[in-house]
């Protein structure tokens, strides 16, 4: 699992972001290596989500640079991010509850035949395949997502990333409203992404959910990066001390 000499996938350099008068990110450097899983932790309002939304094209940085596979890139929309191979699984807003599983997986990138007519056969088959790859067996691709459990829903969102050959999957608080059993289910999906060699950023304020699967931890507080440590050099106790301390320190 030693990857510090591996190839850099993403490098964010000196990222600054203002929201009106709120200084949300104050010069953050952040990188992810190929195939690596990074736990991004910190209290609410630490800037984790803002940082990640810049990477996924939802916000734009006011200052700073992003490199992807060594190239300087400009990510000005979610579409740009997806073109690069960056897929984001947002905590709650990733899925349209009344739409079917297949329509959710292919949302915005529907396979089409002539004149933009959706190729349902391909869409349904590919959906079931992507879900099966995650070890998730659902009865039909036509089920509306609202009928699934919380864990299964995250599975659908992650299957989407898997199907579109993401190089980096960002999971934004994927375990936030889930039962213990469902959390374990989601962690198993993440392990599948790891087996496929996909880089993962796992954002959480529950350290213990990230601890099992991440290889490196980045701690943020008040718009700054406070720590960047490998799992082998730390412990859950030390990390939680770090989170608490950095939240109060000035």
């Amino acid at each position: 699992m030693e990857r510090q000499n591996g190839e850099l996938l993403v490098r964010m350099v000196n990222i600054h972001k203002w929201f009106g008068r709120v200084y949300a990110l104050r010069g953050v450097d952040f990188e992810v290596y190929r195939g690596e899983t990074v736990g991004l932790i910190g209290d609410n309002g630490a800037g984790k989500s803002t940082l990640i939304k810049i990477l996924s094209g939802y916000h734009q940085a006011d200052q700073g640079e992003i490199y992807f596979e060594g190239q300087r890139v400009r990510i000005s929309s979610p579409r740009d991010a997806r073109k690069l191979g960056i897929e984001t699984v947002y905590q709650e807003q990733a899925l349209a509850p009344n739409l079917s599983i297949a329509r959710n997986i292919f949302m915005g990138r529907e396979p089409v035949r002539r004149w933009g007519i959706i190729d349902r056969k391909v869409m349904n088959e590919e959906s079931m395949k992507a879900l099966a790859n995650l070890g998730l067996r659902l009865r039909s691709p036509d089920l509306p997502v609202v009928t699934l459990s919380g864990g299964e829903r995250q599975g659908v969102a992650i299957a989407r990333a898997l199907h579109f050959k993401a190089k980096l999957v960002i999971l934004d608080e994927p375990t936030v409203a889930l039962s213990v059993k469902e959390v374990e289910e989601v962690l198993e999906f993440v392990r599948q992404l790891q087996r496929e060699g996909i880089s993962v950023i796992f954002i959480t304020h529950n350290l213990y959910h990230a601890y099992d699967i991440a290889e490196r931890f980045v701690v943020m507080a008040r718009g700054k990066k406070m720590a960047d440590v490998k799992k082998k050099d730390t412990s859950p106790e030390e990390l939680s001390q770090l989170v608490i301390k950095s939240a109060f320190a000035e």
Binding site: S56, Y58, S77, P78, R79, R82, T88, Y90, Q93, A94, L95, A96, P97, N98, L99, R103, M107, G108, R109
Partner: peptide, 15 residues
Amino acid sequence: YATGDNRDAARAMGI
């Protein structure tokens, strides 16, 4: 459908 059902999700998916 996606826009009406969950606008944020639709936007995040590049719609």
